[in-house]
Simulated assay, not measured.
Amino acid sequence: MTVLLGGLAVVAVLVAGQQARTAADLSALAAAGAVVEGADEAGACATARRVADRHGAQIVTCALTRASDRPWPEVALEAARPVADTPWTLTARSRAGMVPARTTPRRSRAASRQSAGPPCGRRARR
């Protein structure tokens, strides 16, 4: 019986952790979307709180960062979700914003094919 209860507690923690991560990710995306639509930090964080609340989580921290070299700001937040039938609470962090540009040049497809060797299942000609 003790093993069963321990297993159920582990499952509850795993489920709550995934729900906290999902709530944090969706809240950060919603906040970033609100910023794109013209919201300030308070408005973006209020949007994040509404989304987190719908997912059974609470926003612990929410911050909007504006970098001079990027046109869109980045939203970083932390969400907390209680573990069912326990005194525990799990937190998850997430951030959303503009993806930085690549710093390394891409190789062309032709160059990639030449250096990769023969395709699978075919022998190289000699």
Rank of each mutant, 00 (worst) to 15 (best):
A32E: 11
V36R: 15
V75S: 00
A57S: 06
T47M: 15
S68M: 07
W72N: 00
A32Q: 05
S27D: 02
L29Y: 13
T61W: 01
P71T: 10
G33H: 03
G56A: 10
A34S: 12
A39Y: 09
R49E: 04
P73Q: 07
S68L: 12
A80D: 09
R49S: 04
P71L: 12
R49L: 03
P71K: 13
A57C: 01
H55Q: 15
R66Y: 11
A39N: 09
A34C: 03
S68P: 11
D40M: 03
P82E: 12
V35L: 11
A34K: 10
A42K: 08
L77P: 04
G33Y: 05
R54D: 14
A63P: 08
V51Q: 10
A28L: 09
A39T: 08
V36D: 14
A28R: 09
P71D: 13
A52Q: 08
C62G: 01
W72D: 04
G33F: 04
A39W: 06
G38D: 02
A30T: 06
A42I: 01
A39D: 15
A39P: 01
A80L: 05
D53K: 14
L64N: 01
A76I: 06
E78A: 06
T61N: 05
R50I: 13
R49C: 00
R70V: 03
R49V: 05
E74N: 04
A30W: 10
A80H: 05
C45S: 10
L64T: 08
A67F: 13
A57I: 03
D25S: 14
C45H: 11
L64F: 05
R81L: 11
W72I: 04
P73V: 02
A79H: 09
A30K: 11
A28N: 10
G43T: 04
G38N: 00
A57G: 06
L29I: 07
G56L: 12
R54I: 06
A63C: 02
T61P: 07
A28M: 07
A80Q: 09
C45K: 14
A32G: 02
R66S: 07
A32M: 13
T61R: 13
L29H: 10
T47I: 08
V60G: 01
R50N: 11
V75R: 01
V60E: 06
A46F: 03
A32S: 09
A28H: 12
A28C: 04
R70E: 09
R70H: 11
P71S: 11
W72K: 05
P73K: 11
R81C: 02
A52W: 15
A39C: 06
D53N: 12
A24I: 06
D53G: 05
L77G: 00
A31N: 07
P73I: 12
A31G: 00
A34Q: 12
A63H: 15
L64S: 01
R54G: 09
A32T: 03
A46N: 11
T61Q: 07
G38E: 01
E74S: 03
R70G: 04
A80K: 02
T47K: 15
A48P: 11
R81V: 08
L26R: 10
H55K: 09
E74T: 15
D25Y: 03
T61K: 08
C62L: 04
V51K: 07
A52V: 01
S68W: 02
A31M: 03
S68Y: 04
